[in-house]
Computed example of a mutant assay.
Amino acid sequence: MQAIRSRDTTPERLIRRLVHAQGLRYRVAARPLPKLRRTADMVFRPAKVAVFIDGCYWHGCPEHYVPPKTNSGYWSDKVARNVARDRDTDQRLTAEGWTVLRFWEHEPSDECAARITAEVERRRNAEREDPPSS
């Protein structure tokens, strides 16, 4: 478990590089909400967009997840807890006005980067047109 990367995976680095090339700046492996002890892979604070790039095994991809052969009870429960925590994180962030974008590690990086860029720009433009009242 110690050797498994929790950040800076190849899909994350590739997507970050593509988003950065579009001129967007973000926080890496940051907490979107300070009180919530969960980190997003990319956080765009002013736009309130949190991006997660989920690994197929650890987050139970419906397309690629294969239950382990050894100690299957433990690992299957672990993955189920991860999925439940992901849903809880999505709900908490959404309740606070955040947009949550989740991608699987197998999705094409350029498509993920394009969706991230479009959503951040959309949120930024919406905020410019309708600034919050003080």
Rank of each mutant, 00 (worst) to 15 (best):
K35F: 14
K35H: 15
K35W: 15
K35Q: 15
R37T: 07
R37S: 10
R37C: 02
R38S: 03
R38H: 13
R38P: 00
T39K: 14
T39V: 13
A40I: 06
D41K: 02
M42I: 05
M42V: 05
R45K: 13
R45T: 14
K48G: 12
K48S: 13
V49R: 04
V49G: 11
A50F: 10
A50K: 05
A50G: 08
V51D: 04
F52H: 10
F52W: 06
F52A: 11
F52D: 09
D54A: 06
D54Y: 04
D54L: 02
G55V: 01
C56Y: 03
C56H: 05
C56D: 08
C56E: 01
Y57M: 01
H59C: 03
H59K: 11
C61A: 06
P62S: 05
P62Q: 01
E63K: 13
E63P: 01
E63L: 11
Y65P: 00
Y65I: 10
Y65N: 08
P67K: 13
P67C: 02
P67T: 11
K69R: 15
K69W: 06
K69H: 06
T70G: 00
T70R: 12
T70Q: 11
N71V: 00
N71P: 02
N71Q: 09
S72K: 12
G73Y: 10
G73E: 15
Y74D: 06
Y74S: 01
S76G: 07
S76M: 13
S76C: 13
S76P: 00
D77A: 15
D77N: 14
K78I: 09
K78M: 09
K78F: 08
K78S: 04
A80G: 07
R81F: 03
V83A: 07
V83M: 13
A84W: 03
A84L: 12
R85F: 00
D86P: 07
D86T: 08
D86Q: 10
R87M: 12
D88T: 04
D88I: 00
T89R: 12
T89S: 14
Q91E: 15
Q91D: 14
Q91N: 12
Q91R: 15
R92K: 09
R92H: 07
R92W: 04
R92F: 02
L93H: 07
T94G: 06
T94R: 12
T94Q: 13
A95K: 11
